[in-house]
Every structure is written in C-alpha cells, then in structure tokens.
Design a binder for these strands. Structure first.
Length: 582
RNA sequence: CGGGACGUGGCGCAGUCUGGUAGCGCGCUUGACUGGGGGUCAAGAGGUCGCAGGUUCAAGUCCUGUCGUCCCGACCA
C-alpha cells in the first residue's frame, strides 16, 4: 500500500481526552477514531492489526479442533429470561422492542452467546454419538457498559472470539478446556503479548474451573495476586491468603473491656487517629445482608473484606452490604459503630481477627468504641474463615514466598460451565442406555480488540508504538527520502513491487514530505522493519535497514536490499515463533 | 449511579474571575527558499465560542436548564 493512497491520520499532539498510553497512541498513530463514549471506528492501520490478531485466533482455534460458526447478534429476550440472565445482566444487556406488523418483538443485542449456542445445540444434538465438539465464532458483542473507559480497553461494542464446548463427561470437558487453555497460550504468545494465566472465580464447579489470561499493565483494571517465587497467580476475587488456621483462644494478658467516646469517628482512619492506635489493632465490622439475613463480618482494620469469599463462607446466593435500617436494628447504633460485642446477629470472622489482642471495635452505640476487646471473653467464635483480599506481603498459599499485587488487562477467559445453560435451555443427549443427560459445557472468550490495545499499552517508547511482526499492520515501511529524485523513487518502487510480490506486507511512504517528518511518523505507527532510500546512500550504492527497536540502521547494498529484507523478516518470524509453546 | 473536571476553527490551548471588535501554536491552501529526525519566509482559508432559555444597550464571559466527553469510585455474565 502506498501511504498517499490510504488513510493514516497521525496526530502530533496528544488528544486531551486520552489518558492511558494505548488510547493516546492508537489515536495519534491513526489506528482509531472515536464516535462516542465506548465506540470507536477502526481506521485502515488499526483494522489491519485487528484482522491479523483475528487470523491468529482463528488459526489456533482450528488447530485446537474448534469449528467456526456465525450466530446472530440479534437475539430474542426470551432466551435470557429462561436462563435468568436478563436479570443478572441488568442494565448491561442492550434490549429493545420492535414493531413487526401488529405485534411487538422484544430483542437483545448479544452480550455473549451462551444462550444462543445452547439453544442451537439443543435443537441439533440428540445422541452421545454427536459429542463432544467445540464451536466458536468471532463476532461483535454489545454491552451497555455503565462506564466505558480507557479508550478501546473498555467499550460498549467489541470484537470477541467466543467458543463453547459440549461434552458428555467431565473428562471430555477437561480435555476441551485443556485444549483451549493451550490454544490461548499459543495465541497470546504469537501476538507478542506477555501474558499471565491466573486462577479466577470458578462458580459452582469449583477447583481449577476457571482461568483468566491477563496482560500485566499498570493501567489494567484487574488486580492480580501472584507469587514471584512459584507460579501461583490468581485474580484478587479468589486469591488465597496463605494464612494458617490459628487456634482460637483467649489471650493471656487481657486488658479490661473499656467503652470510650469517639464522637463522629466512623471510619477506621478516624478511629485509629482519635485513639492513637494502628488500623491493624481495629476490628472492622461489616453488616452484610446474606440472602436477606443480616450477618456481621469481621476483618482486621487494615484489611479489605472480599465479598466472593464471604459469599462462599456463608453459602449465600446473594450478598450485599446491609442498608442503614438493618444496621440500626442489629447494632442499635448508626452506621459506623458496629462491633461484635453484644451484636444481635450471627458473626463470622477472618482468620486474622481473633489474633488481635486488646482490639478496638465499635461499641454498637452512637459515638462510642470499645478498647480491650478479646475473643473468648467479649465475643465468641467457633471458627474463622479466609474472608479478605490477599494483601501485598501476605504469605503465598503454595510455597514460602510472599504475594504481590500486579495490575492486568483481561484478554481471555476460559471457564468450565457445567450444566447451567444446558439444564435451563433443555440441551440434552441420550446415552447408550437411552438415559437423558444435560450436556456438559465450557465457554472460552478472547477480547480481540484488547489484544491490540494491550500491545499498544505495553509495547511503546517515547516515539510511538513498537509492534511485534505478527500483528503489525504492515511488516515493512519503505521511506524514499525525496520522492522527486527519480533514482530514489525507482529503487523504492522496485523494492516495493518485488517485496509485495514476495508476499510481504509493505507500506510505501510516497508522501512529499521532509525526511524528519517521515521518520517521526514511521516511529509513531511502529512498523517493525524500515527501509530508507536516500540520494546520498544511493551514491554509495547503499540503502538503510532498521528494526523499530534497534538503535541504528544497517547499511545494505542496493542490489541485495530485497533479499536482505526477506531474510531478516524470516529470521524475525522464527525468533517470534520460538516463544510460542507447542 | 455518587464525586470531580472540561466543552472556543481539524488538533492542543488562551480569553470567562472583572461583560464592550474572537486570539495563539500546530495542521491546512498557494508561492518561494530548503531538503537525513515533526524546516524558513510571505500571502491566505477556516470558528453563530456544545445547545436552549434568561439578565443586559451589549454575553465566549453573568444566571438557569440541557446535551456531550474525560477522570475517580460503585457496577461489570
């Protein structure tokens, strides 16, 4: 492609709306333009990169034995009502009424396709002989994000590869899951991403039923807990703290239980300042409503309660912080003064809570706290749970290492679904004995746009994007320094023609512009290999070849320019391929 | 949904407090010079200051409302 024949609107100054690097670079390099919050047009360069990522995803899906289909984005709302996800999605599900003749139809724009694919399979599969298989598609998904942000990282419309496996046994499900897991590793490695598979919320099946693929990045929305010493990595939602179960016993040297005035001090910070103690000396008492029943959850003052863990510990289907009236009812005090001593509801506590000797807690009375609170004497616990977020510095649950937090962008998610959808949508098969069973499912998603955004978020320097060869919109950029110099242009055109014919993705900067201007644009759009053809060089019979990440150019004889480009591209492709797991 | 910020040529911004001829840089057009890391000079084009209403002799500027965008938080199968 000739630069003058395509549309690459680069921008010198950083658009004021863009904050994160990927957003700034994608706008500046002319990859995308915004239509509205959460909706972007992919311009030629951005779309080429996106399609390259898509091609890699497709190749690896096929290699893993998945079969491609294409399902409608328009879906009847009724399917979501049958699985209960209309309510679960809530406002995120984009849905609307349409008039068709004298009747109305209620439709949704697919936020994902579990319902549609399960409905399809329920109508097509009858016997175990047809199973197992895995279907996939690459398609635009729609979600009414409450708050789209970070440019293209979180949008209300995005390209997703979604795959669904259908099996008759847990063993078959595990095989499909493992195949997808391996394919994902290959995909992200081929795309040149640094990725981290982390354990994620696994739902009803438990165990290792779910992994997220994260790209470590400072601006990632997710917090990952990982151990630098072993391979343990988990989403904050489910990361274990590695705390040993402590014995619950009344400590030896207890202070007296004392009620102290703490006017208007409702936060951990205010109380610790007023009473001149560390937040770790406090017990944070949170009143939750678990399936409608109030429960007090105790964690140490400097810890954060983890709602997923609380929900699992209580075996509750729904969990939310209790409203003000409930809090007054069980504590007899306004919000901010709850404590375990004399509270009128069940208590569960994190492992670290009974370890606090002479703790400070709310006194269940307005403007008052207790000091000298001790388990066994002032309140009772039978057992403790892991109820809090794993913290920086916590012990690793798998080895003697120390956990640390990193932020990440979720680019993929693999999940063992079980029979949730097949049961509600009646997707069953008959076995050898003519018994009917719900099909066992798995689902596997990749955010294709996020592959591009994560690359831009992690691979750049002061001058612009640094694409890997595998995803770069073009592999080679030819820059003739002076397009009015006939010899320069004839060499440039010859290289362009020969390399294009050889199957290389070549962009030729045929714009009438000064060299410095072209170099700046070249670095900004980040094409991996750059071939510079200038009048001075040609007088010495030489052209220049430079990788985007290299310090300086290599001089190459004009006559061997084409072969040198081909062999260097080949070597780079091999180098990138070596990082891909088998 | 709670909190905050911002809407002025294509982009980045000043002007708003204290009402009185709409400005700067980049980009764009034309010409000349220049020609290896976002050039120089000259001459131009381009904006009903997000929108609506109000106050005023007079509104980019003050008031009310509204729409939009971004950031923090909540939410996120």
């Amino acid at each position: 492609m000739r630069w003058s024949q395509t549309l690459i609107p680069t921008i010198k100054e950083v658009p004021s709306d863009a904050e994160v690097p990927s957003h700034q670079l994608m706008l500046r390099a002319g990859l995308i333009r915004q239509l509205m919050a959460g909706a972007y047009t992919y311009l030629p360069l951005g779309y080429r990169a996106l399609r390259k990522a898509e091609a890699i995803v497709r190749q690896e899906m096929e290699r893993a034995g998945a079969i491609e289909i294409h399902m409608p984005a328009l879906q009847p709302i009724e399917l979501f009502e049958r699985t209960g996800r209309r309510e679960a999605f809530g406002n995120v599900l984009i849905n609307f009424d349409l008039k068709r003749g004298d009747r109305r139809v209620h439709l949704a724009l697919g936020p994902t396709h579990e319902e549609v694919v399960t409905d399809l399979v329920s109508k097509v599969v009858t016997t175990y002989k047809q199973l197992p298989f895995t279907l996939y598609q690459i398609q635009t998904k729609f979600r009414n994000e409450e708050r789209p942000r970070f440019g293209v990282l979180r949008t209300s419309e995005f390209l997703m590869k979604d795959a669904y496996s259908f099996s008759t046994s847990v063993e078959q499900l595990n095989d499909a899951y493992d195949a997808m897991y391996a394919a994902y590793c290959r995909i992200f490695a081929r795309c040149g991403l640094e990725y981290l598979p982390v354990e994620a919320e696994s739902g009803p099946i438990g165990g290792d039923a779910s992994h997220e693929f994260m790209v470590p990045a400072g601006n990632g929305e997710d917090t990952i807990v990982r151990c630098p010493k072993c391979s343990y990595a988990a989403n904050m939602e489910r990361a274990d703290t590695g705390r040993q179960l402590p014995a619950i016993g009344q400590p030896a040297d207890c202070a007296e239980l004392t009620k102290v005035d703490t006017p208007n001090a409702t936060s951990i910070e205010q109380v610790s300042r007023m009473l001149n103690c560390e937040p770790s000396q406090l017990v944070k008492t949170l009143i939750y409503s678990a399936d409608g029943k109030p429960t007090a959850v105790l964690v140490r003052g400097d810890h954060e309660a983890n709602e997923g863990k609380v929900r699992r510990a209580l075996g509750a289907a729904s969990l939310e912080l209790a409203d003000e009236d409930t809090i007054r009812e069980v504590t007899g005090a306004p919000v901010g003064f709850a404590g375990p001593v004399g509270i009128k509801c069940p208590i569960i506590a994190d492992h670290d809570v009974p370890q606090i000797v002479n703790a400070v807690t709310g006194a269940n009375a307005a403007d008052a706290h207790y000091t000298g609170v001790n388990v066994g004497r002032d309140y009772q616990l039978d057992t403790t749970f892991d109820l809090r977020d794993a913290d920086n510095g916590d012990p690793c649950p798998r080895c003697d290492g120390t956990l640390e937090h990193v932020h990440g962008i979720e680019v993929g998610h693999v999940f063992k679904l079980g029979t949730k959808y097949s049961k509600s949508l009646d997707a069953v098969y008959i076995d050898e004995k003519e018994d009917r069973h719900p099909i066992i499912m798995g689902c596997y998603g990749i955010g294709v746009n996020r592959i591009i955004a994560s690359l831009c978020e992690t691979r750049y320097d002061d001058n612009g994007i640094v694409w890997p060869l595998s995803i770069a919109p073009y592999e080679l950029l030819i820059i003739p320094l002076n397009i009015e110099d006939e010899e320069v242009m004839s060499v440039a055109n010859r290289c362009y023609d020969e390399l294009t014919a050889a199957g290389v993705d070549v962009l030729l900067d045929d714009r009438k512009a000064r060299p410095g201007f072209k170099f700046k644009d070249a670095d900004l759009i980040g094409i991996p290999l750059r071939l510079v053809i200038g009048g001075k060089g040609l007088q010495e019979g030489q052209v220049e070849l430079k990788w985007r990440w290299a310090d300086g150019p290599d001089k190459v004889p004009v006559d061997s320019a084409v072969s040198e480009v081909l062999s260097q591209l080949d070597a780079q492709r091999k180098a990138e391929a070596e990082k891909v797991p088998q």
